[in-house]
């Protein structure tokens, strides 16, 4: 039993080391590539632009629900005018970065992992090696940099849509004063809040793209079975691990930021 636990522990540490090495190598591999801008723009389109509709929908419904829930909590204390502040702070600090990251992982992260896994199985990654093209620079690095660009922008977009959703429920549906909603928001939200939200967005983007790429790139080593089932296994693994990473990192960052 202890031996088995030890083996699992050692394997986990080994994988964490490989992931770190993979991420660092990938991050700098873009430097050796030709047509960097072209690759980066394509990756920004895949991770950023294609995720806009889902962010719009999820952001809107999240704001609508937040407006509704917080209105009933605040109305118990006759503090409905604080709704704008409550919705915006909750969104900017917590829900915006976390939901955006989870949504992007669901859409772009899973696609990235599956694509790399299929490319591994189809020997396309080996083919790049035989053509002397660095596969990390060609396939992974542009995605990693694109995530650093897209996650904060998508998070900001989510925040605005959710705050607008809160306005729809609170002001348009439940009759909270519109001036109070927006004034409270502008008065209470500071640069520090926005900065903290962006710190989370950057971190989540970086970590989840690394986790998804790693699982796809090494699908032949990380899955129990070869072929399509192996890719399906590592894609699921990528999404599950990314979600755990988002929530764990959120807790750690929040603890750190609250203390500073």
């Amino acid at each position: 039993m202890i031996r088995k636990l030890g083996k699992v522990g050692v394997a986990a540490v080994e994988e964490l080391g490989q992931l770190t090495l993979f991420t660092v190598q990938s991050l700098f591999a873009l430097a050796g590539q030709r047509y960097r801008a072209e690759k980066l723009i394509r990756a920004v389109y895949e991770i950023g632009v294609r995720c806009v509709p889902i962010i719009l929908i999820v952001g809107l419904f999240t704001g609508l629900v937040l407006g509704l829930q917080l209105y009933y909590v605040l109305s118990r204390f006759s503090s409905e005018t604080l709704l704008g502040q409550a919705v915006s702070l909750t969104t900017i600090l917590e829900i915006g970065p976390v939901f955006t990251a989870i949504m992007v992982v669901g859409q772009a992260g899973s696609a990235l992992s599956a694509e790399l896994g299929i490319q591994r199985n189809a020997e396309q990654i080996d083919a790049l090696h035989t053509m002397r093209i660095r596969s990390l620079g060609f396939l992974v690095s542009p995605r990693l940099w694109a995530a650093l660009i897209c996650f904060p922008i998508l998070t900001a977009f989510f925040d605005w849509v959710a705050i607008f959703g809160g306005h729809l429920t609170g002001v348009e549906l439940l009759g909270v004063d519109g001036g109070a909603y927006w004034n409270r928001l502008y008065d209470e939200i500071t640069f520090t809040h926005v900065r903290d939200g962006f710190i989370k967005a950057f971190t989540f983007g970086f970590l989840t793209t690394a986790v998804c790429s790693f699982n796809g790139y090494f699908t032949h080593k990380l899955s129990d079975v070869p072929g399509a089932r192996g890719v399906s296994q590592t894609t699921t693994r990528a999404v599950v691990y990314s979600s755990i990473v988002i929530l764990a990192a959120d807790y750690l960052i929040t603890s750190f930021l609250i203390q500073t």
Partner: peptide, 20 residues
């Protein structure tokens, strides 16, 4: 064959030249 299935024949053949 390990061809890139989302690229055309031209792009597949051009890839080593374009990248290196």
């Amino acid at each position: 064959n390990a061809l890139f299935d989302s690229m055309t024949v031209f792009d597949n053949v051009a890839m080593p030249l374009r990248e290196k």
